[in-house]
Design a protein around this nucleic acid. Sequence first.
DNA 1: ATGTCGATACTTTATCGA
Length: 260
Amino acid sequence: MRIATWNINGVKARISGVLTWLSQTSPDVACLQEIKSQDEGFPAGPIEELGYNVAVHGQKGFNGVAILSKHPFDEINARLPGDDDDDHARYLEVVIPAGGTIVRVASIYLPNGNPMPGPKFDYKLAWMERLESHAKTLLMQEEPLILAGDYNVIPEDEDVYDPEAWRDDALFQPETRGALRTLHNLGLTDAYRACHTEPHKYTFWDYQAGAWQKDNGIRIDQLLLSPQAADRLAHCEIDRFTRGWEKPSDHVPVWVELNV
DNA sequence: ATGTCGATACTTTATCGA
């Protein structure tokens, strides 16, 4: 079973590329972030024609997450618990039947947090605490669990082309990186790092300043696996090729193959 | 310091968020 995540930076601008990628790589489950669309504006039709069920949690103009699945959903839950006043559409969680068991999959668009310091950075850290709390609850279920998405955190120096260039950025602060490590230390495995040790493998390249051409990237899109999912982990790869397409997203897909 | 892109609105250019 292949489960992928991709920050598409606007579904209206990217629908053609998304359909091409789905046709070419045929993931069983695809978590999308930054759809920048309301639920009713999401182009479910052409995606359903490729054999996918569609769950959407969107809002007008920015943010927004979705999950596409070849198997029907047993359960769909939008919103990260812990703050009823948080109106950003950044979290969608589903349960999908898989080979006699189930997988629980979340599509996560973690706040960017810039400028730092300030209220946006405070919101990011508070959101990460809520994610930690929710992850603890989910881990107690002892299910195959995949928390996939744009974490907007650079885990280590080896995950950025030039650590000094990002030293003052919200994505690379000690507090931010510590909060991600806390998630790992709950028992969640960074799937890419479990499969690969080479440094400088990226999932995002800025549109500006020729970042793609110079390979000035960062690795911020990740799939975190519960022990029950990590036990079934076969492969994890980055679909770097989509960054070279016409009208690309600034992020590329990352996917895992699970033995289920 | 700069660069680019996508969405939105009292739109034909500026603002915001990234």
